[in-house]
């Protein structure tokens, strides 16, 4: 099986990534590996460099130093040094990014169907009927009423916009999805539904995922492994349950103890 073949090398290898904004540190010397099918959570307080790290490894920002190797269908590419066409091709076919604010990830004045179809058409599909069918299929998967296919996202609720963003990214069957606080703008019940949906999709499609969040409950539910960040550095990493049940670093202890238990 394809899975087995690619199992012996990590999907994403991040080596000593740093990003400096002038003298200010965005993130510093972060190393990790992401294996196929794995969900990695990056947690930390606001301003700890989570999003900077995510932008660096997803090819949207150029890191100051370090390297990111992505083992895609077309072989291993260096996301920091590969030619732009190759990098952008990988980004729009094999990767996806779900943003905290759906306005960043969706085209707000293009219909839901058009939003889902964009990647398909960018990858060369030139058949309206097929684009339409695929869009309907994905709306159903993310539990959006198929009658809404021609509505524009500004008429959608926050939770629906977020689900549409997920559909738009997953339509090309990517192997790797980056999520930047996908649930933080949503109320608790909608969060729970979205997480449920994500959990289902991750197992169904065998996705690998890097998820940035400040919500430990979300990581407990989805992530296999955790990286805890503070002031731009990774202070602790390990299996999710291990980190959350037996935190070693004082900051992680603080973070875990600050969760409210009703």
């Amino acid at each position: 099986m394809c899975m087995k073949d690619s199992n012996h090398i990590p999907l994403l290898k991040v080596k000593s990534i740093s990003k400096y904004y002038g003298r200010r540190i965005g993130c510093r010397k972060i190393d990790f590996e992401l294996w196929p099918g794995e969900v990695l959570g990056i947690v930390g307080e606001s301003g700890s460099g989570k999003t900077t790290l995510l932008n660096c490894i997803s090819g949207q920002m150029e890191p100051s130093e370090g390297a990111v190797w992505y083992a895609g269908n077309g072989g291993v590419i260096d996301m920091c040094a590969a030619p732009e066409p190759q990098r952008r091709l990988a980004m729009r076919t094999e990767m996806g990014t779900v943003y905290q604010n759906p306005r960043d990830g969706l085209r707000m004045h293009i219909s839901a169907g058009g939003n889902i179809g964009e990647r398909l058409m960018a990858n060369g599909l030139r058949h309206y009927g097929k684009v339409r069918r695929k869009a309907l299929n994905w709306l159903e998967k993310v539990e959006i009423d198929s009658e809404r296919i021609d509505d524009i996202p500004v008429t959608f609720s926050g939770g629906m916009q977020q689900r549409l963003q997920i559909a738009r990214n997953l339509v090309t069957n990517p192997r790797l999805v980056f999520m930047d606080e996908p649930t933080s703008g949503l109320d608790v019940s909608v969060q729970a539904r979205l997480l449920d949906l994500l959990k289902g999709l991750v197992t169904e499609l065998d996705l690998s995922m890097v998820m940035v969040t400040h919500d430990l409950a979300v990581t407990r539910l989805l992530a296999h492994r955790l990286i805890v960040m503070k002031d731009g550095e990774a202070v602790e990493s390990g299996l999710t349950d291990q980190v959350l049940d037996d935190p070693q670093h004082p900051y992680t202890q603080l973070l875990v103890s600050s969760i409210l238990h009703p």
Binding site: E84, P85, R88, S111, G114, M121, A122, Y128
Partner: peptide, 22 residues
């Protein structure tokens, strides 16, 4: 300009898609 340079024209078809959908 980058889209022209890299021949990324998927978005143009989104425009046509929207026309047909509407």
């Amino acid at each position: 300009r980058r889209m022209h340079a890299l021949k990324e024209y998927g978005i143009m078809y989104v425009k046509l898609y929207e026309d047909i959908a509407r």
